[in-house]
Write a protein that binds this DNA or RNA. Structure first.
Lengths: 117, 117
DNA sequence: TTAATATATCGTAATATTGCAATATAAATA
DNA sequence: TATTTATATTGCAATATTACGATATATTAA
């Protein structure tokens, strides 16, 4: 069977710039409460976490593992084996880009009050 | 037919805090290159846009309309009828929350170099 | 009122994400 | 080596998102 649209449903990544796609990937990685919770927990303990992230979240171990993988793929966290468990922490370079995006927005908004709407 | 899991596939929103869910909604709204492009365009022209967003994006009009709706629902942009078209601009209060989140992270990271991983 | 223009909604096809049980893998310890 | 502990992967069921044609709606202009 032949369909009319061969890319239906998939994001048209090729139609956007690399920067736009990269920002979207970073934002998307933060677009789930479990992943926000993971980041918040990493900030709360203010050090690397070696193994207790699963116990902190209200989700099954495979699900948590999946969320950690997504944050890692997006460059937001990093993790390495540390003895019997894995040591996770925030990956600072990964934040620079998305931080810069929000700083740009803030700068623009401060400079000009464009709230005619 | 009865299934084993009745919430399979859906995000377990109830298991997270309101703040976590709200942040996730904001980040998720920015998690698509078309929506990043819309924000960037609004910043670039540095004023309200009345009607030419569809022409700026490489997507069909209903798709753009859908993306605008998502940004609007998340509180990131606002838009009202202005003559024959709709005037869109960034909704500043919507940014305060997500901006604060990134500022918190930055503060933590500046305070303590937790890159043992 | 009618035609033109701009935007939204509906319907639908396709891909993506979410979640977890079962299982595999990898490292530490007995 | 065998067992335990921690994490990853696989497979699958279900929901969510993406995209666009067709169509509806709403405002302006003729």
């Amino acid at each position: 069977m032949q369909y009319k649209y061969n890319t239906m449903g998939a994001t048209k990544t090729d139609s956007f710039t690399d920067k736009q796609n990269e920002l979207a990937i970073l934002a998307k990685a933060l677009g789930h409460p479990a992943r926000i919770a993971i980041i918040e927990y990493l900030l709360k303990v203010d050090s690397c976490i070696c193994g207790d992230i699963v116990n902190e979240l209200p989700l099954a171990q495979p699900t948590v593992s999946q969320h950690l993988k997504e944050l890692k793929n997006a460059g937001i966290i990093k993790g390495n084996f540390e003895g019997n468990s894995i040591c996770y922490c925030i990956n600072e370079p990964g934040f620079e880009q998305i931080k810069g995006f929000f700083q740009d927005i803030t700068k623009h908004l401060d400079k000009k009050k464009n709230d005619c709407c």
